[in-house]
Design a protein around this nucleic acid. Structure first.
Lengths: 177, 177
DNA sequence: TATAATCCCTACCATACGGATAGGGAATTA
DNA sequence: TAATTCCCTATCCGTATGGTAGGGATTATA
């Protein structure tokens, strides 16, 4: 019951762009470095986000990407949908497979169907109602109150150095596995 | 964001056993056939369920499995937990990985942490509050009102023949993929 | 118009993991 | 002793996911 790397990367990227909203074109490279996402992989992701209208882009020197709408109008759900990620825990809930599912009435499979439906409903509700503005605000609130984000407090804050090139040498981009 | 076959199978099996609760030992074979789950795969699953105390079993002729508690005391969450399936959409929420996560404060990863937490919370709430008794009741209610289960009504009911051997010949067990 | 800097496209590679199989061992009954 | 069941552990296998590679468009700028 995990979200894919692709999904997470997409959200990170959009989140980054949300922070930089209004500051013109942001380059692929910058995002990849800051968020530590493999460059070429991120490239594909941004293309998808662009095709679905969440981002806009321009080639050439000084080119890059930017959020096509203000952060308050971009939801987490929209981003995940652009990546073709379904929030449904089970295939037969995705409309196109509903008929298939019908064949399984004899088994106890469908006994559980409403359960998955409930779960999906709740999940979608959260994903759709969360904008990147919300994420930003929530972060601000958390940092102000000295937390780590989320509810795990008291973590040793051993590093606040940024990723942006510490003269020349750049931290290598680390893979997920 | 899918539940695994293992998880689904486990739930089907337990659901089946819930229906047969109080009827003594039910054989692996019977469950596998009725639910169309690959026999040897199911065997592993039942072993896990047994080790976690949800099922009890006995070898030998007339042996089999049975639910060790009444259906009203077995939750969906318990079954999934026995299979080591986490309801968390993201690794860093599983306590053992929390520290790892702490290292990522610089990235925007953790900005999203509370979101995953909320989703997990909601999911868990549903999973924990649903017992196999509930599932049974809900099914009864659904069939009584002529539905297919879930909310997809009007599906052509082209087959009500059972899986239990129609003289000798047994339907082949179909794989998931 | 040349050149460099970016994004764009499409094909490909690698492998971890989930799903499934196989087979012999240990209980239990008769 | 033999049949029937569950128990254990090792292994296979396909594929979806994560990641690479590289040439082609586009745009800026000099």
């Amino acid at each position: 019951m995990k979200i894919s790397a692709k999904g997470e990367y997409a959200l990170q990227a959009v989140n980054y762009l949300a922070h930089k909203h209004g500051q013109g074109y942001i380059q692929l490279k910058e995002i990849a470095l800051h968020e530590r996402i493999p460059l070429k992989f991120l490239e594909q992701i941004l293309t998808a986000l662009k095709n679905s209208g969440i981002l806009k882009s321009r080639s050439g020197p000084g080119g890059g990407y930017y959020l096509s709408r203000p952060p308050s109008e971009v939801t987490v759900a929209q981003v995940l949908q652009s990546m073709d990620l379904s929030a449904s825990p089970v295939d037969c809930l995705n409309e196109c497979n509903e008929f298939e599912c019908g064949k399984n009435n004899e088994r106890d499979l469908c006994d559980l169907r409403w359960l998955w439906k409930d779960i999906r409903e709740e999940t979608v509700k959260i994903l759709e109602s969360t904008t990147f503005q919300d994420i930003r605000e929530r972060k601000a609130r958390a940092t102000r109150s000295g937390e780590t984000t989320g509810s795990t407090e008291g973590r040793a804050e051993e590093s606040s150095r940024s990723d942006k090139k510490v003269h020349g040498t750049v931290r290598p981009i680390i893979n997920r596995r």
